[in-house]
């Protein structure tokens, strides 16, 4: 009984509730349009890149670090794809090449954070500007839009006769991998431990720096993968692909109940939050709300996500104290 109540007061539950409200809002204001298979497809499709990047970023934030350069890595990936394609590379070669490049971009973040001991917030704000700048250097302001059709078809297409977009299927596969790593392996336990108390993690023999470094590398590679998806989905590679996307990704992770201070969170919460963001933006778009307002909504969700968990934590605490049903167990020894 009391267990149910504490569970109810968890932030993840609030996210699920908000998701249901958003769906209800979409369904009542735009009716059939909203509930059509085609629209569900576009909800999932629209959040593909956010969703893919949110996976490694969840791990990074649980480890009490952050990576704001992800959207710039995405843009740089698009630009390099366009550049290499213009220079006659085969797409089969380009994809692994840009993934390696993304990993290297992440490795630079990782080196700066773990070897030089710089705060990841500062480092990745720096590389956010740097990688985006590089993207413009590589491709200028041209757009490369003549990618082979088999790839762009994949970006637009749905999976084996369902309404689920191909990129989202990719996401589901990755989500399972990341979910298992974070919640069921030693690496995941280490990430939680170092996020909550880095010193104690070190004193437990956990290779804190090494894990952090690889987290940045993986995040870079995943941001690159998102860049590939983005380029195919829009059939266009431009240096400004995905500008400002990092805001949405961070919003989704925090909204999903991951603590900005590290050490707390669950990937399922993050997945709920990305569906919430997608649904809400979609429903608003169907109601002809402007793009500027959508940005305001994203910003508000970000604020809500930072405020929310501490509010629910207080509610939970109050419930525990007020009822006296579920007091913190007091040890018998003194």
């Amino acid at each position: 009984m009391s267990e149910v109540k504490t569970r109810l007061a968890r932030w993840e539950t609030v996210t699920v509730f908000l998701l249901l409200v958003a769906i209800l809002y979409g369904a009542t204001t735009s009716g059939e349009d909203f509930l059509s298979g085609g629209n569900l497809n576009s909800i999932l499709s629209d959040i593909s890149e956010i969703a893919i990047i949110a996976l490694p970023l969840t791990l990074i934030i649980v480890a009490a670090e952050i990576d704001l350069s992800v959207a710039s890595v995405l843009g740089l990936t698009s630009a390099v794809m366009g550049y290499l394609w213009n220079h006659g590379w085969a797409m089969e070669m380009i994809i692994p090449a840009v993934l390696v490049m993304g990993a290297l971009a992440g490795a630079l973040n990782g080196v700066l954070v773990t070897r030089l001991g710089l705060p990841s917030l500062a480092v990745t704000i720096g590389t956010l500007a740097m990688y985006r700048g590089l993207a413009y250097v590589v491709l200028g302001d041209q757009a490369v839009a003549d990618f082979p059709q088999q790839f762009t078809d994949w970006g637009f297409g749905t999976f084996a006769g369902t309404q689920i977009p191909n990129p989202f299927v990719l996401f589901i596969v990755l989500a399972i991998v990341f979910g298992v790593v974070l919640h069921m392996t030693g690496i995941g336990r280490s990430i939680f431990a170092m996020g909550a108390n880095e010193e104690a993690a070190r004193f437990s023999g956990i290779r804190v720096k090494r894990i952090k470094f690889w987290l940045f590398v993986v995040t870079g590679a995943m941001a690159s993968l998102a860049g590939v998806v983005y380029a195919f989905r829009f059939a266009s590679a431009r240096a400004d692909n995905g500008v400002g996307l990092e805001l949405s990704v961070v919003a989704v992770v925090l909204l999903g109940g991951v603590s900005i201070f590290g050490g707390k969170g669950h990937l399922l919460g993050v997945i709920c939050a990305m569906l919430l963001l997608g649904t809400l933006r979609n429903a608003l778009t169907l109601n002809d709300v402007s793009a500027e307002v959508l940005t305001i909504v994203t910003g508000s969700l970000l604020l809500l996500s930072v405020l929310g968990p501490s509010v629910t934590a207080r509610v939970r605490e109050a419930l525990r104290r007020g009822r006296g049903v579920d007091p913190p167990p007091t040890p018998t020894t003194t």
């Binding site: 939680f192 909550a196 108390n197 104690a200 004193f203 050490g263 707390k264």
Partner: peptide, 13 residues
């Protein structure tokens, strides 16, 4: 509290 344990983690973890 700072070095030995991760206080918010469970006993088993």
């Amino acid at each position: 509290r700072q070095q030995g344990l991760v206080m918010e983690m469970s006993i088993e973890r």
